[in-house]
Design a protein around this nucleic acid. Structure first.
Lengths: 395, 395
DNA sequence: CCATATTAGTCAACTGTATGGATTAAATAG
DNA sequence: CTATTTAATCCATACAGTTGACTAATATGG
């Protein structure tokens, strides 16, 4: 019971950053006494902090501003991707306190070796956090693959060549004991959640985050949660059929979106060499080249993006009819390409989604781009801490 | 706190129908004393009942079987449709205790008049329930239209010709005071929930319930909840595009599924006269005629269903890739037509959904058919009672 | 057949947690 | 400087679930 109420108060503090105890009591329905008691516990755990005096209304005693303690607990976000490893540390105020990305060709490397490297990266991050007075409360790893949440396995990560790897268990060994045990989740889902927590996805209620990487994935966020599906395979936007009977796809189907609007397809259509694996929106790389062409108004490149955008928009129209999102967020490689691809997406989306609804959801570009997954991973930990502050009481 | 714990215990009782107090204590984590106390409260409210002795393990004192009181509280489900009104009463054991359907052409009738008729039907149902010793705890109305849950309005019910009707508020006036205030919800969503609660939808984890009526709708159930979407418009399966550039649809698009696999389209393709409004799967009616043709192996009718099934399957493939359901449930008119339409649906579904996933979800026919919506409406009330038993304590 | 082990359920005292009302603290208004 | 208003805390009370002992009802085994 205490647990739940601690969470309620902490959530409220997070939502209304500097709040007085009196206002918290109003909002949560607890008495002022109870709020004070609960806050005392949270303060003891280093989660909240008293601040300056705040003049609430007109007259009367000013209240004490309570806010989240940005120098207490911290969250470690990790990411394994095809050609890099990344780590970041966020404090409870959701500010980035540390960020590191090391290029690394992980294809074919043994999972244990990769996780060992990741463990070193994580240890550095924990040390850096400690140097800033932060205590890392937990960690989450973003992995590009399908996972089995029941057994804590990464079932298949085709681009890494992994099968049935217990990533979080391995990481738990590599990392010093954390109050919140290490976990892993799908990269696309975490990127979508990052958009919810750190981007402006929250303003739209629910949304679909489209992440273009090697394939095209989508994270569907509704009611503050990712739609995972029965087996955790939801969001396979890239394999919706755009051209019935079109080009064959690796999935066995024909005319999949991925074959038309995927990274390789776009590059090819723009006359650039396709790459087998690459990171979305990295400062250098083939996308940079593509953007150079686009900025020079290269006709072929512009046409490539128009075609991809139309296909993407048509597919998204199906998704909009099914899921009714409040917005479409373009992430991954689509984020830096947004200015060129958005018009076509919006046009096709408008045509395809019935006029029954009042308005077609707006199409916006993600501001997080390539960092979305790591941020989302750290965000998961933050949410855990906020939802279960009791986990940090023992320390 | 009491509220929550009462709900926890009651939920557990519902799940494991005849259970002893000792087993409940194990399952819920409460102590035996607490379980006894909570059960005493629930028994006082007429929600649970002690039964016969039960020999639990090998030796030792036998336990007392606790089960849901089927003769205490009851749920009233109502339905407004284009050409009929329906009511049903379910007890907490989920048995149907009363069921009534009156044919009624509701098109063009004033909402107030319709709800007044519905109120009479509801009053009869309440009286019939009382005659069986049941006390109706609450009611929910199924309405064929888009609704605004924030303000409790039916925003648009095109087939009824309604706009912005406060259905539940009107019904609250028409019905005697109920412990749980009357509510309304979308027909398609309630049908999907009925499949979850009364059909075998629960076995599949999450599923998509396709209800063919005049249009084609879908209720997407995941994690025990309907996916509503940001504006409540989710599940518009009928307006996914199957034939880009195909026949124009009422929604403004072209080549929508509804124009190929909707009731009118199927009837037309089978050489039967189209009807503007009709009830899914009613014993008589055009669907009956179609089934007669099919049973006589009429080629044209068979071809019509094959075509519709292929289109439906192709569309569902998109939905499967996006949402990853554990099953596809064919409801509405598709339920009685399942034997003829399922093969084509499965074939198209198999082709369209990528081989990334282990298995294509099974396609099954709903057993509830036309009654799904009313049952779902009553089910909502049952779930409310089980989730908030405290609401019935005052009485 | 009776003692013992085993399981189900209840009773009485205890503990933790939130509530309610009164109290202290700190500001503004007149 | 006093009255008023708002913020936060203190203390006694009530509620709810836990703990451990106790009674009840069955099966096992000598």
């Amino acid at each position: 019971m205490r647990e739940r109420n601690l969470a309620v108060v902490l959530e409220q503090v997070v939502r209304c950053q500097p709040v007085t105890r009196a206002r918290l009591a109003e909002q949560t329905g607890f008495t002022k006494t109870t709020v004070s008691n609960l806050l005392a516990v949270l303060e003891g755990a280093g989660l909240v902090q008293d601040g300056a005096l705040v003049q609430g209304g007109e007259r009367g005693r000013p209240g004490i501003a309570v806010s989240v303690n940005g120098d207490g607990a911290a969250a470690l976000g990790l990411e394994i991707n095809v050609d890099y490893l990344a780590a970041c540390v966020l404090d409870l105020g959701r500010r980035t306190r540390y960020h590191q990305l090391v290029t690394f060709d992980n294809r074919g490397r043994a999972p244990e070796a990769v996780i060992s490297s990741l463990g070193r990266l994580a240890a550095e991050a924990v040390a850096a956090a400690a140097g800033q007075g932060l205590v890392v409360a937990g960690a989450t790893v973003a992995v590009p693959g399908l996972l089995d949440r029941e057994n804590g396995l990464v079932r298949r990560a085709p681009n890494l060549g992994w099968t049935d790897v217990p990533v979080s268990a391995l990481l738990r060994d590599a990392l010093p004991d954390l109050p919140i045990p290490a976990a892993h989740d799908n990269e696309a889902n975490l990127a979508a959640l990052a958009e919810l927590w750190f981007g402006d996805g929250a303003r739209h209620g629910g949304f679909i985050h489209v992440s273009g990487e090697i394939g095209i994935g989508a994270g569907i966020v509704m009611d503050g949660q990712v739609l995972r599906g029965t087996h955790g395979f939801a969001g396979e936007l890239g394999h919706l059929v755009v051209e019935p009977g079109g080009a064959p796809c690796t999935c066995g189907g024909r005319g999949c979106l991925e074959q038309i609007a995927g990274q390789d397809a776009i590059l090819r259509a723009a006359g650039l060499p396709a790459v087998t694996a690459t990171t979305a929106a990295k400062p250098d790389g083939p996308i940079r080249e593509l953007i150079d062409l686009l900025e020079r108004s290269d006709q072929r490149a512009l046409a490539a993006l128009d075609g991809a955008g139309r296909a993407l928009g048509a597919t998204l129209a199906s998704a909009v009819n099914l899921v009714d999102p409040g917005a479409i967020v373009l992430g991954g490689i689509f984020s830096p390409l947004a200015s060129w691809i958005r018009p076509a997406v919006e046009a096709a989306l408008g045509e395809g989604s019935g006029s029954l609804r009042t308005a077609v959801p707006p199409v916006v570009a993600s501001e997080l781009a390539g960092n979305a997954a790591v941020l989302g991973a750290a965000g998961v930990v933050i949410e855990r801490v906020i939802g279960h502050p009791a986990l940090l009481l023992s320390s």
